[in-house]
Design a protein around this nucleic acid. Structure first.
Lengths: 303, 303
DNA sequence: TGATATTGATAAGTAATGTCTATCAATAGA
DNA sequence: TCTATTGATAGACATTACTTATCAATATCA
C-alpha cells in the first residue's frame, strides 16, 4: 500500500465530504459524480489501511481516524495550495536567488540593492554568500550561485558581465601611524594590511606599494575588510581600502591618507551572470544590478 | 492545469532529485526508471506552469522557483507523511473520540477516566461535551457524539449501555438553612434547587420532595451543578445532590443533610454507545468505561 | 580529434488508474 | 407500501504512468 500514490485531490475530496456532509454534495462541489467520490474514498482508505467513514442509515460520519485526518490535513493542505499557487503565479514572482559578492561589493551595494529587490519582488528570497571574487567566479561557473558582484575585471567566455562603476582605492592609516610616518619622513617598514592573496585588491596593493617606493617588513592579510579597517584604525599599520567603505572613518578622522603615497587607479566592480542564463527573474535582477553605481552608495561603518 | 492532480510522489520525486543531484540517482532511490522521473518532473512543471530545473551541460540545477518549492515542500511533506502513517498505524491508535457526559458524571468520572485513556492511547484526542443526558442521547443517536455518560437508566433500542454504579442522592442545605428549618420545625417553604427539568435528577427531586411532605414556594433550576452547590452552600435553599459531588463539602461542614428528609433511592449512571458501533477504538473505550464505578471516584470541589 | 561515457528527452507499447452511466442495496420519510 | 435519498458496484471507456529502446547534448579520456 503506497501512501505516495495519494494525490491532493484525495485530500480535497475528504475535506469537502467532511464540510458538506454527503458524497453527493462533495461530488457537486468538485464537479464530478457520486460514484467517483465513492471510489476516491475507497482508494484513500485502501492506501491508508484504515476506515475513514461509517455509514449510519442514510448518513455518513467520520470515524475517529477520519476526524483526525480531516483536522490535521487542513493546515497542511492549505500550506501546499499556497505554495503550489505561488510557484506558478507570475504576478507575484517568488523563488530563491543566490547572490555572491566580495565583501567590498557586499558592503557597498547589497544593503540598498537587497532592499530594492525586496520592494520589487516581495516574495523573492535571497541566499547571499560573501567570498573572494575568484571563488565566486568558480561558483557561478559550476551553477552554485546565480549572480556575482566582483572586484576587478571579470572576463570569462561563459560569463556575461556589466560594470557598476569604479571605486577609488586609498592608502590609509590611523593618525598615530601617520604621525610616526611623518616623524620618520617616509612609510618604510610599517606593517601593510591587505585582503588575502586571491583578492584583486591584493595585487593592486602590491602595485601601489611598489609604485610608491614603500618597502615593508610585513604584509599582513585578512579576509574580512571591516576587521581590517578596525585594525588599521587602531594603529596596526597601513591598509588599502575602497573609498566607499571608509567614507565615515575619514570624516571622523579615524583614518587618513598616508603622506607621500601615489594615487592608485580605481578598481572596477562588475556584476556577472552565466552567459547562458535563461531564468527571467535572474535576467531581471542582473539588469537591475547593472544600473547600480558603486560610488554613489554610502557605506555605514558598522562596529 | 489542475494542481490537485499532483500527488505526493511528485513532491517526493522533486525532493529526491534535489538531494541526490541527478534524475538517474533519484530513479534508483525511488525504484523506478530515469524516463519515469523525467516524465514526473515534466508533469509537475506542467501543472505548476513554471520551470523547476535548468539543464547546464550534464548537470541539472534548480531554478529559483524550484529551489523555493523544495525548501517549502519539505516541512509540509514531512507533516503529511507523519499524518498519513499514523492514520494507518494500528500500533499507535490515534483519532478523535467524542464523549458526552452529564455534569455529574463528568465531574465524578471524567478526570480519572480521561487520564487513563490518555495513558493507554497517547495519540488519542477527545472532544468532550457537557450537556444534559436527554440531549446527549439525541446526539449519539444522530451520530454527533460517540460515547455518553448519562444519569438514570438509558433505554433505547439503538443504544448499547452498561451501568457504572449508582450514586446516593442527598437533600442538603447549608448550616444556616438547617438552623432555620429546625427552628421552624419543618422544611416547608424553603427554596428548592434542582437541575433543569430535562434532567433525570429533576424528576427524582420532585419525587423526593413529595415523599418527604416538603412543600416549597419555589423550585429553582440551574444547569450547572457546581454553581448550584455554591448557591445552596451560601444559604440559598435546599438542593439535591449526588454524594460523589459533595463529599468534600460535607466533610467541611459547608453542607449538611436536611433533617426529616426521607432517604432517596440512588440514581444509576450508565455509559452508552450506539448498538451498531463497529469502530474498534470506541468499542475498547466503551469496555474501559464499563469497568468504572462512579461511587469509587472522588470528586474534588473546585472553586 | 575521435571515441566513449554520462545525463536527460522522446517514442511506442502496455498496464494501471479514474470516471462515466446505469443500476442495485439499504434506509428514511410520507 | 411507495417514494426519495444516499452510497456501492459493474461495465465501458478515456486518461495516466511506466517500461524498454533509442536519440541528443555534453563532458571526459586517450
Amino acid at each position: 500500500m503506497s501512501i505516495n500514490r495519494i494525490a491532493f485531490y484525495h485530500i480535497e475530496t475528504l475535506l469537502w465530504i467532511a464540510r458538506l456532509g454527503t458524497f453527493g454534495a462533495a461530488a457537486e462541489r468538485l464537479k464530478t459524480t457520486q460514484p467517483a467520490i465513492s471510489a476516491r474514498v475507497r482508494e484513500l482508505e485502501h492506501h491508508l489501511g484504515t476506515s475513514l467513514f461509517r455509514r449510519e442509515g442514510r448518513t455518513m460520519t467520520l470515524t475517529p481516524a477520519g476526524r483526525q485526518l480531516v483536522r490535521e490535513s487542513e493546515p497542511l493542505m492549505a500550506g501546499f495550495q499556497s505554495l503550489l499557487h505561488s510557484a506558478g503565479d507570475t504576478a507575484e514572482t517568488a523563488g530563491i536567488v543566490r547572490i555572491g559578492a566580495g565583501e567590498i561589493a557586499a558592503a557597498s551595494c547589497l544593503p540598498g540593492f537587497v532592499a530594492e529587490l525586496q520592494r520589487t519582488w516581495p516574495n523573492l528570497s535571497l541566499e547571499i554568500e560573501i567570498a573572494l571574487t575568484a571563488d565566486l567566479i568558480q561558483q557561478i561557473l559550476t551553477g552554485r550561485t546565480d549572480l556575482v558582484f566582483g572586484a576587478g575585471r571579470i572576463a570569462h567566455p561563459a560569463l556575461r558581465t556589466t560594470s557598476i562603476g569604479a571605486v577609488d582605492l586609498l592608502l590609509l592609516a590611523s593618525p598615530t601611524t601617520i604621525g610616526a610616518i611623518e616623524a620618520q619622513g617616509n612609510a618604510t617598514n610599517f606593517p601593510i594590511w591587505s585582503l588575502s592573496s586571491h583578492s584583486p585588491l591584493y595585487h593592486i596593493m602590491k602595485q601601489a606599494i611598489a609604485a610608491s617606493g614603500i618597502t615593508s617588513r610585513s604584509v599582513n592579510l585578512c579576509n574580512n575588510a571591516r576587521m581590517m579597517i578596525d585594525i588599521v584604525a587602531a594603529g596596526g599599520g597601513i591598509g588599502i581600502f575602497p573609498h566607499s567603505m571608509v567614507r565615515q572613518a575619514l570624516e571622523d578622522g579615524a583614518l587618513a591618507l598616508v603622506p607621500g603615497a601615489m594615487d592608485i587607479p580605481p578598481v572596477e566592480f562588475q556584476v556577472a551572470i552565466r552567459a547562458g542564463e535563461t531564468d527571467p527573474l535572474i535576467l531581471h535582477i542582473f539588469e537591475r544590478a547593472g544600473q547600480l553605481d558603486i560610488r554613489a552608495m554610502s557605506t555605514p561603518l558598522a562596529s
